[in-house]
Nucleic acid binder design. Sequence first.
RNA 1: GGGCUCGUAGCUCAGCUGGUUAGAGCGCAUGAUUCACAUUCAUGAGGUCAGAGGUUCAAAUCCUCUCGAGCCCACCA
Length: 883
Amino acid sequence: MANFEIPKAYEPQKYEDSLYQKWEESGFFNPDNLPGRRQKSFTISLPPPNATGVLHIGHAVMLAIQDLVIRFQRLQGKKTLWLPGTDHAAIATQTKVEKLIKDKEGKTRFDLGREDFLKRVNDYVKKSQNTIKNQIRKMGSSCDWSRERYTLDQGLTLAVHTAFVEMYQDGLIYRRVRVVNWCPRCHSTLSDDEVEYRSVKEKLYWIKYGPFILATARPETKLGDTAVAVHPSDKRYTKYVGQKIMIPGVLGDFEITVVADGAVDPQFGSGVIKVTPAHDFTDFEIAQRHNIAFKQVIDEDGKMMANCGKYAGKTTWQCRQAIVADMQKMGLIEKIEDYDHNLSVCYRCETPIEPIPSKQWFINVTKPIDKFGGKTLKDQALAVVKDGEIKIIPDRFEKVYYHWLENLRDWCISRQLWFGHRIPVYYRKQANSKSETLNPKQQEEIYVGIEPPKGERWVQDPDTLDTWFSSGLWTFSTLGWPEKTKDLTTYHPTDLMETGYDILFFWIARMIIMSTYLLNDVPFRTVYLHGLVRDEQGRKMSKSLENTIDPLDMIKKYGADATRLSLIIGNTPGNDMNISEAKIAGYRNFVNKLWNISRYILMRASSVQLIEKPLQPKTLADNWILFELDNLIDFAAKNLSEYNFSIVGEKIYEFTWLKLADWYVEISKVKSQNSKLTEEILLYILQVLLKLWHPFCPFVTEQIWGQLHSKELLIVQPWPKPLNKINQKVIKDFDLIQNIITAIRNLRVEVKLAPGQKTKAIVISSKAKLILGQVEIIKSLARLDDLKILTKSQKLAKSFSAIIAGAEIYLPVSGMMDIVKEVKRLEAEAQQAKNFISHLQQKLENKRFLERAPKEIINAEKDKLAINQNRLEKIEQQLKTLR
RNA sequence: GGGCUCGUAGCUCAGCUGGUUAGAGCGCAUGAUUCACAUUCAUGAGGUCAGAGGUUCAAAUCCUCUCGAGCCCACCA
């Protein structure tokens, strides 16, 4: 016995923080400090959480998976870099701070002014940024904090400006008036992807429209109508096409043009639509095709403009009520129907979107780029996935990606937010201008550059860039781009991008677009998409349902290792997973089991040391467990490098608990097995197992490793190598021994023997020699005081029996025996065997089966038949004896 | 309207490119506690693999349809 004490139960809270500190101090999170010669690099860019965020279960999955991969690759001898950072998340952060100020002081950002407001936001970010970073540490994430970045820091800002200028110079960034998604609350544009849809019950108004009757969900936009459109082949309306018609309206008659356009569905409604070019995307396009004027009637606050007469100043909703009432009075409403409608809302504040015309900056995704041989941004982004330069897991998302890209329209990148990267564009104010704050967008003279231009009267564009513009550069801006740094050449392209499928478009696609254009290279080789985490009933977690699971609570209660295991095992890529506290508690139990297995091994070892020399297994059990371990090492390495995490976790779990703890450890307690070799084998298995488990549950494994008198931490150990010495036959042999033991235990329960009570047993088997060799083990694990082994069947006194493949087992009767019950049990078994035999016989009599099935299958079926026929025979003999 | 995922024991899920008498964990039942661990151990009950067709010697696994749950995309007023 070793002369040290290990606590009976593993208490993660006692060790985790100091272990993390030890790792950080070791410097091994930084690839530059890793020991040994490491040629290949392996890089992951951490998807940067919002700087003001707090760790939620979604982050926890992401961190668990990425840390698993990075730790595995580190054990594999790679130069591993996991680069962390935070995102300024322009719209999310600004919205959050605006709300805080509104709630506390009742002020808007406009009350404070740009400068003050930004100061408040930056202070808030600074204050809360450490929260998320420390929470990332709590998960055990082995990321290189020395390379940590923030999307608004100096280097990344330079990258953003450089990217903008380069794209502008290549003509890929342009400014134009178009109808854009406008959030009246944020007071900003949104990209198409930042718009979400809510299905709502609304009204559909059928209105009389001059000679037409048509339906609209938004009668207030009638004030901005300039045309009516019908389908070119719709004969009903041909006579009107090209005409200008006066339409009676609530503000008097107004003139519209009738146009024919393919966008109209003649089957739908009356086949006529009113065209409001300024406040509808389709209508804007129709108007452009037919050169129709547009009339803006809704302003940036979502209110009706001065040109709307008595409706001016009303919100669109108020205006709708008023205008409908007025139209009803005028008899212009034909009917009103209930209507299920998709309402577009802002993805950050849920405010309904108003399409309004506005002059904004866009990225042209369909312009041929000279230096790429005429390929467009779209083409390039499509090609790298189609050509397999980037692999998406699971691959079904590749289709989703193609579909999105193929339908991508120009990306609106300017935002009227204050928080974010200011657009590096400057306008020259006219010298004679009186106004101090002249709207720069009306100026003609423009300068686009990384640094502000020299000279007088230059005013910077007030707008900021879409937050996804800067995160699109994340994989390389964090490595020093636009400088040609050593990090950039060493670690880019990154190897893995691991994130939720919900930001495939927002982020993954944008990164690919930006990287293929700016670096002429992919940002990453593999994309692994995880699913959403839901509650145990599969519901989305939300505060209102009170079903959220806070990973920090779980870490406190069950430990980071258990939390990680529960998020990885049973989780497959692309599919949502359900999680419950019970599941986490289950893995807490497992972690404790691993702890106690180690405790047993360490306490029984006469000297604890790393096993470096090759082992020579002696017994059947030794050979068996080492064979299983060898298989496990290979299986784990292969599948982890292919990103099959769950199955690997399950297999190591099965090995640890069901094979090692339940069998080998129990066998090692048998007196006859008590040898120095057994101790060494146990130590060896432990040392291998800790390495295999380390990527999954780093804390407990590192803590146990600390007992093994290793010079170096577990985190930088080499991945284990299989011994490759073992004979396959041991599996079958050991199987028989296991089955005999289980069968006896089974009989003991059947017979209601007290667990502590020893009994006698007789085993009849052709493999008597094998069994004889394991007699001590069988006696011990099955609690026998005597085991008789016979080769041939012979007449025995009445006894309980278990007939298994390869052996007959008899338990002599002590006292009275319920013969009727025992006969019943055996008859049931006989019947089962008969059914199976006839099933096999049918199969083997089928000519087509014999002709077409592969030889191995046929032979396997024949073997099964023989075994079961033999078994049936034995059962019937026993039945005869009993009767 | 287009596309995708899922439907296997009471619950959560494994079962890959078709070939075991369909598995695991939790829960449940019975029993066990000096001897690493009750955050434990032993044993057991529980499923015609959503339904219907088809392909095949062979289908939970491949194809078609139906039903049910959910997600994504789309300019249908």
